[in-house]
Simulated assay, not measured.
Amino acid sequence: MASERANEGPCGVRVEEVSEDELRGLVAMGFKGYTRVKTLIRVYPGRILLLPRYLALADRLKNFEFRKDDIVVMTYPKCGTTWMQELVWGLTRPGNLRAADSVPLNQRSFFLEVDILTNLEAQLNDATLLERFRAACGEAAKPEDGIILQMTQAAPTHSPRVIKTHLTFPLLNCDLLDKCKVIYVTRDARDACVSYHHHNRLISTYQYEGTFHHFAHAYMDGDVIYGDQWDHTASAWARRHHPNLHIVSYEALQQDINACLAKIVSFLRLQLSDAQIREVAEHADFSNMKTRDSKAPLTFSGPVRASEGSFYRKGGTGGWEAVATPALTTTMNSWIEKRSKEAGFSLPLHLG
């Protein structure tokens, strides 16, 4: 049950604090990382579960000024975001792919709202991050206003920014689609759930230590960070006819990446040959991305629990059957059928 302490957020969206009982219930379910926050919040529309630092940065995120040559990769978590970031970065820089060998992806492509997932004190203790922040934004910039957010704003204008976000359209600038291109990636809910379970175990911000069974139920109830997958995708579905929105599925990319990339090239109005498209596809092949990460590793919004493996796990489809019981599969399939009927679309959604 939600807390009665609900109000209009700083950007006009409705913000609701979860109750102490609900927070304790999530911790008991296995989300041990939530013991380090005083509360969680839900943001409407979409009933999006977020960490409380969102409140301090909501207005800046809502009013973030996108540029006309920005390319925004928007997804629900674990739906192919990192893959699409690398693909788009490569498509816009086909002659400079080797730069990825020494510069990690999250320094070549910006995670717009990552500050809300991060403890400010931890950021202030990261000397390398602060050095990059000061170099990009100057001594007068305030870390509490969002370190990565301000670095995204300050990025040079001579090349297109590739910006990643898991926020939905209502939480971002209303001129986003009128100003720049957005690629929205979807994925089968079962595989996304499995991957998000691993992510929640890996990242100490969440420090999930419960069973997959309990995580899957939290996932279906929208009680994971960023909320319900269908509610998230609904914001893209409602805008599906906008010429600056391209919706593609993780599964379609797996099935025929060159065909998908050709459509993305056309959508972005780029000029690439078939050979260049194949080169970018190979550049962003899972095994190549994993190899590069060992040389120029990603940095995360919180410490990584090495005992849970690595960020680059399998990069495939069909992982649900290996971890779910028949009873859980029946429950998940019933939920998928119900949510599909309610929303008017099925996942994975592919309109590209």
Rank of each mutant, 00 (worst) to 15 (best):
D70T: 04
F300V: 02
S346E: 14
A2I: 15
S19H: 05
I41P: 04
M289N: 06
A216G: 12
R278Y: 03
Y219R: 04
M84K: 01
S102N: 13
L351G: 07
L120S: 08
F311T: 03
P143R: 06
V103P: 06
S334A: 13
R14H: 11
G95W: 00
W237K: 11
R47L: 11
K164Y: 04
N125C: 14
K142F: 00
Y312F: 15
V280P: 06
S3V: 00
V248R: 01
A218F: 01
T152G: 09
K290M: 00
G25E: 12
N173L: 08
L40I: 03
I41S: 04
L268E: 07
Q150C: 09
N119I: 07
K181F: 07
F267E: 14
I257T: 05
A281M: 07
N200Q: 07
C260E: 07
S334Y: 05
S195I: 03
A281Y: 02
W89H: 02
N333R: 10
C260A: 00
C11L: 13
A216L: 15
F300M: 01
D101I: 09
Q276N: 03
F169Q: 10
L105W: 04
H166S: 09
K341T: 14
P303Y: 09
L177A: 00
I247T: 00
G318V: 11
T330H: 12
H241P: 06
Q255M: 01
P104C: 05
N125E: 14
D59N: 12
R313G: 00
M151G: 06
L61G: 01
A141M: 15
T205A: 12
I203W: 15
Q271R: 14
E279Q: 08
L268P: 05
N96V: 08
E121D: 15
L261P: 03
A127E: 15
E139T: 07
S159I: 12
S109F: 10
Q271E: 12
H232S: 13
I277F: 08
L55Q: 15
D145T: 06
D228G: 07
F311Q: 05
E22L: 15
H197N: 11
A259R: 11
R132C: 04
G316C: 10
L351P: 01
A135V: 10
E17R: 14
H242I: 04
R134D: 10
C193R: 02
F66A: 05
Y208M: 01
I257C: 15
R269K: 13
V114W: 07
H241E: 14
V72C: 06
F286L: 04
V43R: 10
I203K: 03
W335K: 03
M289Y: 03
A56S: 13
Y206D: 09
E16D: 14
T325L: 08
L261H: 05
I225S: 06
F64M: 07
V88Q: 10
N173P: 02
T317N: 11
Y208S: 12
T186D: 05
T92W: 02
Q229A: 08
L349E: 13
F133I: 02
L129V: 10
I203A: 09
H197G: 03
K164S: 10
Q123F: 09
P94M: 05
N125S: 12
K32D: 07
T82S: 12
L261M: 10
N119C: 06
I225H: 07
Y219K: 07
